[in-house]
């Protein structure tokens, strides 16, 4: 698209786009590193993820300030308005993703003390890979302004939910097998929940990008498949 006549407006808009791209890359990295720290018992890496979160908080503040200023000074309309609106929404989602990754990193120490076996974290690792791929794809879509894959990406969130549900069952089984697993597994359960939530944020971003590009809502709502809230322990199960 051609440039704005007012150069400063153009600069404001590209500032927003750049910051979102930066935040996206940062959030991805935080998530990937938090799970790696968990799998590899790497406390140092975990601590770095925790401090890294400040970068996202600061970026969110900058985007908020710039967006408010752009609205006040330029009264953006049409595609500009949708871009500013998307920047506000997406930055909020990315900041939350950072918080969730930080929360995973914070748990590494506690999980480490429990000396978990590899099998306990395998599921988390896999869930993370799937979610990270989702996040990467929506951020690519933001960068390239392409919406062809977005509804597919959003619908794939069901896979994450389904995997989370099965992970929930699995961790429950370990806890019932041996009560000494309870501390570790509870932490892991929170980690899994965090990752599942990151998937939801990726879905939000997909919807925001779709609106930004198309000026319309993404077609119909998908069914939710996180059934973990229905899981209960029946008498005799797991014995």
């Amino acid at each position: 698209m051609s440039q704005h006549t007012v150069t400063a407006f153009e600069e404001d808009m590209s500032f927003l786009a750049h910051k979102i791209a930066e935040m996206g890359g940062h959030a991805e990295r935080m998530m990937e590193q938090s799970v790696r720290a968990l799998v590899e018992n790497d406390l140092q890496l975990a601590r770095r993820v925790v401090t890294d979160d400040l970068v996202l908080d600061e970026a969110l503040r900058l985007i908020d300030d710039k967006s408010v200023l752009v609205i006040a000074q330029r009264q953006p309309v049409a595609s500009d308005l949708r871009e500013v609106f998307a920047a506000i929404r997406i930055s909020t989602d990315l900041e939350r993703i950072g918080d969730l990754a930080k929360n995973i990193a914070k748990r590494v120490e506690a999980i480490n003390e429990g000396k978990h076996g590899v099998r306990l974290v395998r599921g988390i690792e896999h869930l993370c890979e799937l979610t990270l791929a989702q996040l990467k794809e929506v951020l690519d879509a933001y960068g390239t302004l392409s919406t062809d894959k977005l509804s597919m990406i959003r619908d794939r969130d069901d896979e994450i939910d389904a995997m989370y549900t099965s992970l929930f069952r699995e961790l429950l089984t370990y806890m019932m097998e041996d009560p000494r697993n309870i501390t570790t597994c509870t932490h892991l359960l929170f980690c899994a929940k965090n990752i599942e939530r990151i998937g939801d944020h990726a879905t939000n971003i997909a919807e925001a990008v779709y609106y930004m590009v198309e000026g319309d809502r993404m077609p119909p709502y998908r069914p939710k498949d996180d059934k973990s809230h229905k899981i209960s322990v029946e008498a005799g199960e797991g014995q």
Binding site: H4, T5, V6, R74, A78, S79
Partner: peptide, 11 residues
Amino acid sequence: RTQDYITGRFG
């Protein structure tokens, strides 16, 4: 053309 005009991108 509408998009370009109302967003201040004209010519």
